[in-house]
Design a binder for these strands. Structure first.
Lengths: 238, 238
DNA sequence: ACCTGAACACCGTTCAAGT
DNA sequence: ACCTGAACACCGTTCAAGT
């Protein structure tokens, strides 16, 4: 009798790493980080909690894998055009992906493999090269961009999460925050008081892209290109 | 008999909100977010887990309060000089505080009260006014700065955490990451491969301040001051 | 008013036992 | 090789009972 190759029993019915990750993403999207439990997951996959451990090392491995899958998808979808437009597209793609899957924000840093970071590094770096940024300044440029993109996207997603937790949508949240600020004592909090109106009207996504443009402008500017300037040595010392 | 005013029994021996928060900060610093449990906390305070609930609503309240205390301290310590130097000082103060207390990074956004955000908003906003940024652009400037400061500081602290978790220090971490990148296939990951060397040498704190300077430069620049430009309408649509 | 600590309803993870 | 599900050592939170 010929022994069948192991694995692959009955076409996709079986428990695979991919199926587990897919189910985890659904669970994370619908009920957040607290919603991802091995019990809920195994119920959704009609199996026992122990079965999952055959395919996945532990919860943090699971979270990393789910995060990597989302980032990979977002990067695959970005359209490559001119260097600056492409960087904007990568940035917005991540911003939207993290906004849609807020749990990705916290998972992305602790992702064990280097995969999610490299997935972002590569397309951004390629465009920075295309912009003819001198070799020795390439990391500074890419590092600032990635830190900004991930940092601000996370911030934004957290705010959305916070709003949803309290049961209202983003504009209600802005409204509430803004009126809270305008009610602060103008003597003690003059700025918060005066900026409340602008805060109510602002759009995080537009602000995000303005920041990207600001950084891109800085990368282009001749003064920046002339190399590091060590201007603020005093400020920098701990 | 004169009834004593309630509270204050035996000089600071009693369980107070402050003592609980102080102990929480110590616990968070020494063993991270997972280290803060009501059991560990009550043991440290030689009381029962239930006692804490008399002073604190729940765990998220506790985390917010601890976070607010750290932010307040950092802001109190910043020295006010010229507008731009002051903004740099605020930024670095937060960067260092979050680096030293990495759990603050994740707690700061979900902080229920508006207190931690307003604590940062106010000094930054004051300096933006001092820089004579037109009223209608003040939020954009302050919003970008705060998003950058918190976002990048969190990123940085997460990286430090990650390194510590794996049992080595920051420079070992850079070393390991850098050699991992340089071992990647240059055909598939040309940029990661080529930038590995610069990554090894970079200093997050210096990069952080460069980013702040970049943004401050952008805020100053006349083109930015001339108002929003809606250049990338196509990119922005979802 | 404040504190105690057992009890409840959960977790992630392990592991002998099955197929 | 892969899956089962009970068991273990934890959690946050509650609440009757004490002082």
């Amino acid at each position: 009798m010929v022994k069948k190759a192991p694995g692959r029993p009955r076409q996709g019915e079986s428990l695979t790493r991919e199926r587990i990750i897919e189910a985890s993403i659904e669970l994370l999207d619908s009920s957040g980080e607290v919603g991802l439990t091995f019990r809920a997951l195994s119920e959704r996959l009609s199996t026992g909690p122990g079965a999952i451990y055959w395919h996945i090392a532990n919860k943090s491995d699971l979270l990393s894998a789910a995060c990597d899958a989302v980032v990979a998808r977002a990067m695959d979808e970005t359209v490559v055009t001119t260097p600056k437009e492409t960087i904007r597209a990568v940035a917005l793609g991540l911003f939207d992906a993290i906004n849609e899957h807020p749990w990705v924000g916290s998972a992305i840093t602790s992702s064990v493999g280097l995969s999610p970071i490299v997935r972002i590094l590569e397309p951004v770096g390629e465009q920075i090269r295309a912009l003819r940024v001198p070799e020795e300044q390439q990391w500074a440029a890419v590092g600032t961009l990635i830190a900004y993109i991930l940092g601000v996207s996370k911030q934004n997603a957290d705010n959305g999460q916070l709003a949803r937790t309290r049961g209202f949508d983003r504009s209600d949240f802005l409204e509430a925050m803004s009126t809270a600020w305008s009610k602060l004592d103008p003597k003690q909090y003059p700025f918060a008081h005066s900026v409340a109106g602008q805060f109510r009207e602002h759009d995080d996504r537009v602000d995000f892209i303005s920041g990207i443009d600001l950084i891109l402008k800085g990368i282009d500017s001749p003064r920046h290109r002339s190399g590091p300037q060590h201007k603020h040595a005093a400020t920098l010392q701990r």
